[in-house]
Design a protein around this nucleic acid. Sequence first.
DNA 1: TGAGTTCCTATACATTTGTATAATCGAAGC
DNA 2: GCTTCGATTATACAAATGTATAGGAACTCA
Lengths: 215, 215
Amino acid sequence: MVEQPPTVIVIDDDPGVRDSLGRLLRSAGFRVSLLGSVSEFLKADRPEGPACLVLDVRLPGQSGLELQRELAGAKRQLPIIFITGHGDIPMSVQAMKGGAIEFLTKPFREQDLLDAIQLGHARDRARLEQERAMAELKVRFETLTPREREVMAFVVSGRLNKQIAADLGVSEITVKVHRGQVMRKMRASSLPDLARMADQLQLTPTKPRNPGRVA
Amino acid sequence: MVEQPPTVIVIDDDPGVRDSLGRLLRSAGFRVSLLGSVSEFLKADRPEGPACLVLDVRLPGQSGLELQRELAGAKRQLPIIFITGHGDIPMSVQAMKGGAIEFLTKPFREQDLLDAIQLGHARDRARLEQERAMAELKVRFETLTPREREVMAFVVSGRLNKQIAADLGVSEITVKVHRGQVMRKMRASSLPDLARMADQLQLTPTKPRNPGRVA
DNA sequence: TGAGTTCCTATACATTTGTATAATCGAAGC
DNA sequence: GCTTCGATTATACAAATGTATAGGAACTCA
């Protein structure tokens, strides 16, 4: 788990802007990737560590807002900071609704950009960590056989072994075996632990919660 | 649990704007509250059911953005839709960062406002439901004695009765009694159920999770 | 056909958990 | 001083859970 240096990906069709942003960001200690268009970005590899995008709203070909929409559906969604010289309010509102970190109008204070980038990197780090943990959970979950997954769902919903046995039409002993396998394979240290894993995995096909009635 | 009619609270210092918005919103079936300033709003009662705010960014006395900041710290935070005739991009960005639903510039399409209000009400309904459930949980949790809360924390962290007994320096029987009381008082239907309640309550003073190592 | 996997079951124990009843002790409140 | 409440413990069961060993049936795949 090596600490990856944070990256900033700049997309701007103006070489002058790219250069000056590149100097600023490199001097701030970031790894910088300078690109001239969205298509270049889509072809490029994604950096390993935390990263964020700095892009102009208006770009030749695909615009910044279009890219944002596209990335929203993709798996690897990067924090986005918009920069523009000719923006308007509806544009900025759409960008922010889309989850943008910041929307800066030229000219802007360098510190505002750096602050936004710092926030973007923090979010991306959190997202990376979250995804790492989730991927790990999924790997474990995929080692479960279909039956074990069924049993796990029942177990984390709070049902007893004998109830699960009745639900599945098998003996209680069988349920115990599956249950033990589930705990081992998922590396759950306890039942609450397993329940939390299931919640993370959104494993809730069978979940009869109590309705929370008041006396 | 009667379904409350959704309310729209309009704050605008222009009586003409208030009237026209009032007509529009009432004809759309909303309960409407028309106010001329933030101070009026702060004095007024909060509506019972789902509600959202429609306010001008610029207002005499306290501005719309200031109100947003203030409400962010308060317990009852209402979804906000900003309307303005003289806004700029930084203003809209700040509003959206602050969690505003929408930021409309005059003149705007009535449908855009109605759409935003619908979204605001949906969010407020979700928030109300969430708060109701949380309040209910807290009520139950407050019926627990200090010792019972301690035991609950250990239980949901996955520790066994005998371990908890050792941790607390008491006998296992005692732990069982407390544990049974916790389940009863919290109306937990199962251990996973109790664990989820504890997570909701952010009850995590004692939680030794497994470190999730990879092989 | 044979190996491997999954699912199922059983026996046999060891542990753990839940519950009911009953009792002691100390602190807080009336 | 008496009562109430919280915390504690014990006895005595009842029920649930975990584990180990062992085996059978069905299915897939090479």
